[in-house]
Structures are given as structure tokens and as C-alpha cells.
Write a protein that binds this DNA or RNA. Structure first.
Lengths: 342, 342
DNA sequence: GTGAAAGCGCTAACAC
DNA sequence: GTGTTAGCGCTTTCAC
């Protein structure tokens, strides 16, 4: 038995030689074709194991004309939101035999190039939120590469999955109004993300319907620090209620309120969005959304597209809006005795 | 201008034909070689854009003999812990030009096969915790594929990065003893993860040093529900302090305590590990660890290995233990007035 | 049931 | 500066 080179991975040729067969037979044997005698198969398997042979995926992909891999692009993985979506995606992709490539854009200027390059290594790709421009999306879609947009405004003929924002934001606002809150602030930049835009729109719609003025949004980064910074200014003259673009912002407001000795919900009500684990422990009223499912649907739709019978006449684009749910906790001013567990 | 086929991605041959040059020139032009006139380059670029050409990565990888991609394997992505590690990994990998493939094992029985298959599509791979057996790790390492183990007991000659567990657990325990706590419980399965084992060992060491008996561990799943379930039984006769394998478990204990009307820290002290965002809002005493950095180091070491000058004589295996830090909040019994913000 | 050989899309010598 | 061509590792006809 020859010494194994530690540096170079074994190829199908070496396995073939060792087993005394042709590379075609090795390929067949290892992939479970029934066109091989059991005897040959076990000889091949033995050789493959001795050489620790792992088929080179590039070779295989090239020959098969597919990558058996999908990509997912998102702005970041901080905060549980994207992580959950990615996980739902991975889980479903795995069940249909696709590997998953991730790409975080981090707001990098060269994000477009990175996405393009990703497009060359996958059979399909999901894009979350506004991490790249519509132009980039259109270019890639025009390539024929299957695409699914998540939590993002639809583009031309591309599949899109979103969660319900506007309607639930209206419900949330009505709830706050019922609590007697009259003056409102909104933390988040509607222009920055379609989800935030929808939430702001819902707030405005409900306020207008109630005969009240809608506040101008207070743009801020969608994380703890963003909320903290925005709240510091805001809390000097607090409104009755601060509606935040997401939970992290709302939690930032919590921290700022603590610093400023402002009581929640005594002095000001606060709401978030996403229902992160931390929201539960902070007693934050928020909106739960099926993040995992968002990712799962993307992976599943992508798989459908990839295995479409006639790619020249693709099925018409799919759209779906997943329901979201108001989760009332104490931060919006509900009486302590009424606080629902969970 | 011919109609673009929507179904099939363009190849270098089509670009060459359209630009009236050879494929070699296309390759050179597009990759910024200086061996092309500017005039040719722009012709090629125009053709490439018209055809929306994206180089097929399989072809390229095969020719170059490298994938320009790294993998990372982890048990799950729920809870912020792994997500942070993965993000740190992605971030660093991106800066050195590697794409990232993720693989969640979910405790699947065929995890080994999935990891093997992953090994065939990457230039290197990081493995977090005990998501696959040592045998699998050894097999892959023997292949010559660069590997880094994270938060896992070392294997043979494989690079390993961990975070400090035992010593900080001792510090934590001493802190609890100083609070006057005398009876302890530990929630988590030391046999399930090396991190947990280290934390338990530290607890025991500190207790033994203080002349007290170490409690037997109470095995439980490392998530909210695991902690909740384990705590329900435990809280019927609560010890002075419950030391948990991680924050999620500790937060589960919080929920159980709330249900059972047991006060934290009045009736029982609780501590976690990881310093999740939720821990801050739950007032949980815990231990912070540099998860992001863990991932970043893995990616960087992998890159070093991959570009090692002489793969036949690899540098000796690297080991590193990252420091962790006790974060004292109110759940361990500190007086409210002393609670440190953060 | 097995082997020989033709690609898959690309890079990199090597010619010119 | 550009073209020709030989692979990279694999799958898959097509012969036998």
C-alpha cells in the first residue's frame, strides 16, 4: 500500500487504477448505478476508502452542468433575524440536496460584484431585503438564474416572499390608541428597507384614520446603538408612544430610557418588531413573524424553479405574504395584571 | 443583436465569438491581465455585458485547482451563538476572497456524509463543537484538507481555537460563593459539548477548593425549553444557585421561576454563559466570549494553511484559547444598587 | 457489466 | 498582443 500524499486529494483515476477498473466504472460504482457487479463495487469502494477519495465537486458540477448549490445574500447576520431566515433556508435546501453559500454584503460598495460572482457558483439564489440594487437583481434575473426575493419589494418577474407589515402595524397602532396614547414617534428609516416602510405606512394609516397627524419618521440604524442614540434625543420630550422599526431599536430605547430615568410604560410606551428572544425578557410589545418559514419557502421555490421542466417558458412569478402577529407585553402600557406570559 | 436565451448562461466561447477574439483573450481581458490592448478589452467587456456573461465557477475552479470557497459546519444556527461565529468567519473569508459554504448538522445521522461531500467543494473547512465524530475529522484531515476546529477538543494535528471555560467558570463560582451561596446545581450535559464540560469542571474545581461537594450535573438540551423543563423539577427544592451551561438554559430557568413564583435572585441565583442580548435584558449574570473573533481566526488560519508554501511539510498545528469575561448582573444576587450597566 | 472517449467551461503554457 | 491547445476531474454516451 503506497503512502498517501497528505497534500493532494485523490482523483477518480487513482481509485480506478487501484481497483483495476476504468474511471467510468468507479463513477458508476460510487454513485450506486446498478450496472456494476457487487464484487466490482466493493473493490472500488475499498480502493476509494483507502485513498480517502472524495469526488471533486468542480469536476462533477462541470460535467453535470449544475452546481448543486444555492446562495443566499443578506445585509448582515447580527441580530437573530437574518440568522433565522438563513437557517430555514439551509434546512430546506439540505433536504433537496443543495449546499448553501452565504454572502453578507455588510453594506460594502462592491456588493454587486460579490453577488455577481456568487451567481456563477450556484443554481439559484435568494436575496434578502435591500442589500443590492434593483439593477443588480434585474441583471441576474435576465441571466436566467432562478431568484427569490425576501422581505423586499418585488422586481419585474422575480419570485417574492414577504411578511405582512402594514396591516399588522395598523393593528398595533390601534392597540396603542386604545391604551390612550395620543402622540407618537416612529424610529427607523422607511427609505432604508421595505419592511420598515410598510410598518411606518401602517402606523400613519391608523393614525390618519383616527383623525390624528402622522409623525415624521426619525431615521436610525436598525440596531441597539441606533435606537439608543435616537432615543437619547427623543426622550427629552417623550411622546406617548415610540413605535420602532424593529426590536433592536426598541431595546435600544429601553436602555436609553433606563439611563434617562424614564419609565416604560409609565412615561412612554415602546413597541418593536420581530419578537426576538430578548424582547420577551424585556417585556417588549412587538410583532412576531415567521422568519424561518421565509427562508424555507425561498429554498423550496428555488428548487422548483431549478427543476422546472421547460426553463424557456418559466411559470409566472410567485408572490406570497406571510402573516405576522401582534405580541402584547407590558412595554405598550397594558396593566401589569394583564400581562400575558410568553 | 441576437435575442438572449433566458435559460442558459453564456459561456466564454460565446463572448469570444461576439467580440471576435479567442477565448484566451476573453479570459485575459476580463481578469485584468495587462497583456491586452485597452481597445480589445473594452470590446470584450461590451460583449460580456451584452451576453450577461458570468464565468462559470466550476470551470474556473477545475482549471485553477482550487475552489475559492471555504466551509463551516455547526450544529445549528438557532440562538445567536453560532450565527455570530459564522458571521465572523464570513467576514474574514470575504476579505481574502473566499466564498463561504455553510452546513448545519441538526444532529442528523447522515451528518458525516454531508461533511464529506462538503469537503469536496471547499479549500478548507471549520468545524464547530461536536457536530461530527472525531473519526470524521481525522478522515478529512488525513485527506490533506485544511481544517480548523472551533470550541471543540483538539484532534491529532488539527488547528484548534477555543474560548476559556474552566478558569472563568471558577471565577464565576467564587463570585457566587462570595455572595453566600452554598448549595449549587449545574444544568447542562458535560458529555455533550466540550465547552459545557469545561464550565462544569470549573464549577467543581472551585467548589472543591472551597471544601464543598460538587453537584452532579443535570443534563438538559442547551436551549430555552431544555432549561425550562429541567428547572421545573429543580425549583421544587431550589438550591442557592443554578449554574447553567449557557444563557438559553438560564433564561429557561428564568421562565420556570416566574411560573413557579420563585424569585431570582431572592430565592435562587441563576447564571448563564455567552452573554446573549437577551441576557442583558433579563439581568442575567453570565460570561461574555468573543464569538465573532472565534470565527474570524478560523477563517484566517484556514487561509494561511491553504496558501502554505509547502503543503507536504505543513506548519505544526496551532492552538489558541480566547479569553472570556464574567459579566455580573442581578441574577446572581448582587444588590440592586450595585448592578452595573452594560 | 465494463471500457474508451467526448465533452462540461475555464486557465495557462506555449506558439506566433 | 493574441490564438491554439492541453488539461483540470468528472459524467455519460457509445461500443464491445
Amino acid at each position: 500500500m503506497k503512502a498517501l500524499s497528505k497534500a493532494k486529494a485523490a482523483t477518480i483515476y487513482q481509485v480506478a487504477q487501484r481497483a483495476g477498473v476504468s474511471i467510468a466504472t468507479v463513477s458508476r460504482a460510487l454513485r450506486g448505478s446498478h450496472l456494476v457487479t457487487e464484487e466490482t463495487r466493493s473493490r472500488v469502494q475499498a480502493a476509494a476508502e483507502e485513498l480517502r477519495f472524495t469526488p471533486n465537486r468542480s469536476g462533477r458540477s462541470l460535467a453535470e452542468g449544475r452546481h448543486a448549490a444555492n446562495g443566499i445574500v443578506f445585509p448582515d447576520l447580527t441580530g437573530p433575524y437574518y440568522a433565522e431566515v438563513v437557517l430555514g433556508y439551509e434546512e430546506t435546501a439540505a433536504t433537496v440536496g443543495s449546499s448553501v453559500l452565504i454572502l453578507a454584503t455588510h453594506g460594502r460598495p462592491d456588493a454587486a460584484a460579490a453577488v455577481q460572482e456568487l451567481a456563477g457558483r450556484v443554481d439559484g439564489m435568494a436575496i434578502i431585503s435591500q442589500c443590492v440594487d434593483d439593477d443588480v437583481v434585474r441583471n441576474i434575473a435576465a441571466t436566467g438564474l432562478p431568484l427569490v426575493l425576501l422581505a423586499r419589494d418585488p422586481v419585474d418577474g422575480v419570485d417574492t416572499v414577504r411578511t405582512r407589515n402594514e396591516r399588522t402595524a395598523r393593528t398595533l397602532t390601534e392597540h396603542l390608541l386604545a391604551h390612550g396614547h395620543r402622540s407618537f414617534a416612529f424610529l427607523g428609516d422607511p427609505a432604508g428597507a421595505p419592511d420598515v416602510a410598510g410598518r411606518y405606512a401602517g402606523l400613519c394609516a391608523a393614525l390618519t384614520a383616527a383623525g390624528r397627524d402622522a409623525p415624521a419618521p426619525v431615521p436610525c440604524r436598525l440596531d441597539l446603538d441606533g435606537g439608543l442614540a435616537a432615543a437619547r434625543a427623543l426622550l427629552r420630550h417623550p411622546p406617548d408612544a415610540v413605535v420602532c422599526g424593529n426590536d433592536e431599536v426598541a431595546l435600544g430605547v429601553h436602555l436609553a430610557a433606563e439611563d434617562a430615568q424614564v419609565s416604560i410604560p409609565g412615561d412612554v410606551a415602546v413597541t418593536g418588531w420581530d419578537d426576538l428572544m430578548a424582547a420577551r425578557f424585556a417585556g417588549l410589545t412587538t410583532v412576531a413573524q415567521p422568519m424561518r418559514q421565509l427562508g424555507a419557502i425561498a429554498a423550496s421555490w428555488l428548487h422548483d424553479r431549478i427543476s422546472e421542466p421547460d426553463p424557456d417558458h418559466p411559470a409566472s412569478p410567485r408572490r406570497r405574504v406571510l402573516p405576522t402577529q401582534l405580541v402584547v407585553r407590558r412595554s405598550c402600557g397594558i396593566h401589569p395584571s394583564e400581562v400575558r406570559k410568553s
